[in-house]
Design a protein around this nucleic acid. Structure first.
Lengths: 332, 332
DNA sequence: CTGTTAGCGCATTCAC
DNA sequence: GTGAATGCGCTAACAG
């Protein structure tokens, strides 16, 4: 049995209210008894129990995190960042997986409310409109999503990707997305296309619909592949390497999200990384501000960051270029 | 304001006890009023609030999950499996990251207790002995860890890895671990070594201590690389491919854990996968049994599964072998 | 400055 | 078969 507030009070001959005051630092307590009580608290390692406190104050100190796919390789970095941001303010994180199913998502939200979550961070399923609830919500999706609270600037990330490639002299690009139903991926591709200079050609493939033959594309003159995810960039890279092409000698490859393996492979994968700590911090702050009845903060767009590694290099047969591959990461 | 039990009772002119009885299905309630009440409950979408229930029953319906590194690429599959297993019994999951720090780990455990977790699944930090607590605990580490509740059979996985390679005619192996302080990795390497037949040579490298030149090793006669993680297998594979070697033509590569990218690359990575759903289910069941005051279940060892993909093939210059690479996954 | 009291939402006695 | 009363652990008002 964990010690209760009452136990402390009884052992010291004071009232539970006084002990509670010491814990919260709110009421007025003499320095003397304060010392005495805090001493005792440390001694027996007392911690105020969550449920009792939650019932009384209406705050559980727990935030919900609802995701469409926990097994997404981007999830670890994201969950870690959210957990860290929440920990910093003394909050716990309750997770749920909606498996991309809007019904499961609604159910998950209800369960978080039921469990007493103080607020919910949600990465919505594709095409889902999160109806407003009776507690603070932070939506992380893409800038185009109505009600979006925070997200990486996927469009600008796409621009930077193509600018980087064009800066290296590439004029024939292949843009790789997985699903055009993903608002994040369409934003990235749109950004890529927006950065296209006259004279640069770019072909878009949605892998969900049709898988192109990467080596054949390279054979037809494409010199750079830009994927909306490192996962697909890796698929392209290994396939090209396996077909005997040199990366980045013959062809450059670029991805998004700086997944766990991206720095581990040879050559290292040039990628556009989301600033997870900042996104997470913004999402949590978004929630806490709402809890304090502050006005709803404006949506935030967090810039993406280009991590130049070894997988991108000068386009072959481009006399203007003489850049060399750098050692390690170079950030822009 | 969410509807309360009292609201329902008042609107229907019954007592809160009756409503509660309907919810739990425990007390005796006439079929008539039961219909009436459950109708009302559905109508206004009432859900019993967690904190109140937790306070009264001592059960929160929430399980804690404490991990040494949320950003580990194995985490998504693991978290998803735990979440699914917990959901199946109506439980929520509270996550915490100990960042490999024993002090943070203890702190995380205390916070879960404080928050009212009914039990905790923990993957301990290296070398940490989890002291027994006042609530159910399930430890997932390696069979050698005292108090271990469930884990994959890493040793057997290691055996299978080497047996698979030897079966393909490989006689010069390179075994790759990251850290010898990891009990999981040492178990896998030990299993690999235990399966060595006379005449097979295997060199072990711990990448944390010294990074070998993979291509040079292959040049000296090694024909197969077995890593304790797909991440390091991928490092080896891309480096070998980049050096112009053919996988699996010249050299085979094998990993562990079937990470997200393993099936996506070319060639697909042959790997030993943990049965996450079963491990997760066992861990959760371990907790629930303890909650029911059942005797502590015996530790469980879950077998690992060999997923044969394209990265392993017959050893070169081995006339006895004539196996061909299979299409897709072949499980053993 | 400190103690007493009441009640957060719910499940469980025990009378009726 | 149903309702009134009680208390889980805690904090916020209010008395003292």
């Amino acid at each position: 049995m964990q010690p209760k507030l009452k136990d402390i009070a009884k052992q010291l001959g004071v009232s539970t209210a006084t002990v509670s005051n010491v814990l919260s630092g709110k009421g007025r307590v003499s320095e003397e008894t304060r010392k005495l009580i805090s001493e005792k608290i440390r001694e027996i390692g007392y911690r105020p129990g969550g449920p009792g406190r939650a019932l009384r104050t209406g705050r559980s100190g727990v935030l919900g995190l609802v995701l469409p796919d926990i097994s997404n390789p981007l999830f670890p970095a994201f969950a870690q960042a959210i957990e860290a941001a929440a920990s910093r303010t003394g909050h716990g994180i309750l997770i749920a997986d909606s498996h991309g199913d809007p019904i499961a998502q609604t159910e998950a939200l209800q369960r978080m409310i039921q469990r007493g979550a103080d607020g919910i961070v949600i990465v919505p399923c594709r095409g889902t409109q999160v109806s407003s609830l009776s507690l603070p919500i932070a939506i992380i999706d893409s800038a185009a999503t109505p009600g979006n609270s925070v997200c990486a600037d996927h469009f600008q990330g796409g621009r930077m990707a193509v600018e980087h490639l064009q800066g290296l002299g590439h004029k024939r690009l292949v843009l790789l997305g997985h699903s055009r139903r993903s608002s994040v991926q369409t934003a990235r591709i749109a950004g890529m296309e927006a950065a296209l200079e006259p004279g640069t050609r770019a072909d878009v493939f949605w892998l969900e619909e049709a898988a192109p033959d990467f080596a054949a594309l390279a054979g037809e003159g494409a010199t750079a592949f830009a994927a909306t995810s490192d996962l697909h960039a890796l698929t392209a890279l290994t396939r090209l390497q396996g077909a005997g092409m040199s990366v980045p000698g013959d062809v450059s490859v670029l991805g998004f999200d700086d997944l766990s393996f991206s720095a581990q492979i040879t050559p290292g994968l040039t990628t556009l990384a989301q600033n997870m700590p900042e996104i997470a911090a913004a999402a949590v702050q978004h929630l806490l501000l709402q809890l304090d009845e502050a006005p709803l903060p404006a949506p935030r767009l967090i810039p993406m960051k280009l991590l130049v590694r070894g997988s991108t290099g000068p386009a072959p047969n481009d006399p203007k270029q003489n850049k060399t591959t750098q050692q390690g990461d170079v950030t822009t």
